[in-house]
């Protein structure tokens, strides 16, 4: 499970350095993200640009992380690849998660102005 984290303008950005968020990795992923975000104060952005495959187990892990962070901290997603985006669209979970195009948009846009 490869994750790296950085803070930009008070926003915690976690880069998911895995090609797959699937049943084989979902529980470890959830646990490690919870650990990484335990000290986060407001917004958490998951950079999913390296993830090319997401199944319902991976999606369930993302929902569990979002619930664990709420209500004080918000989970946002960035850099969805086409197959990952499709899972969000089919399950209509794209209406639940704030989804950004990619991190460069974040850096020049709302992150700078957030908080």
């Amino acid at each position: 499970m490869n994750l790296s984290a950085e803070t930009r303008s008070g926003v915690l950005i976690v880069h998911v350095e895995e090609e797959r968020l699937d049943a084989a990795i979902a529980i470890r992923f959830k646990d490690q993200i919870r650990e990484l975000t335990s000290s986060a104060t407001s917004r958490v952005v998951l950079d999913l640009s390296q993830v090319t495959f997401l199944d319902s187990s991976g999606l369930g892990a993302l929902v569990a992380i979002m619930k664990a962070l709420a209500p004080l901290r918000q989970l946002e997603l960035a850099g969805l690849t086409p197959n990952v985006e499709k899972v969000f669209r089919l399950t209509r979970m794209d209406s639940v998660f704030p989804i950004h195009g990619d991190l460069s948009q974040l850096a020049s846009g709302d992150i700078r102005h957030a908080g």
Binding site: S56, V63, M66, K67, T91
Partner: peptide, 20 residues
Amino acid sequence: RPQPGNLPEGGFGWFLIHDL
């Protein structure tokens, strides 16, 4: 059917299978 607003952590698998 899993309702996004209820933030279900499971139940999407069969929904996706039937859909696709």
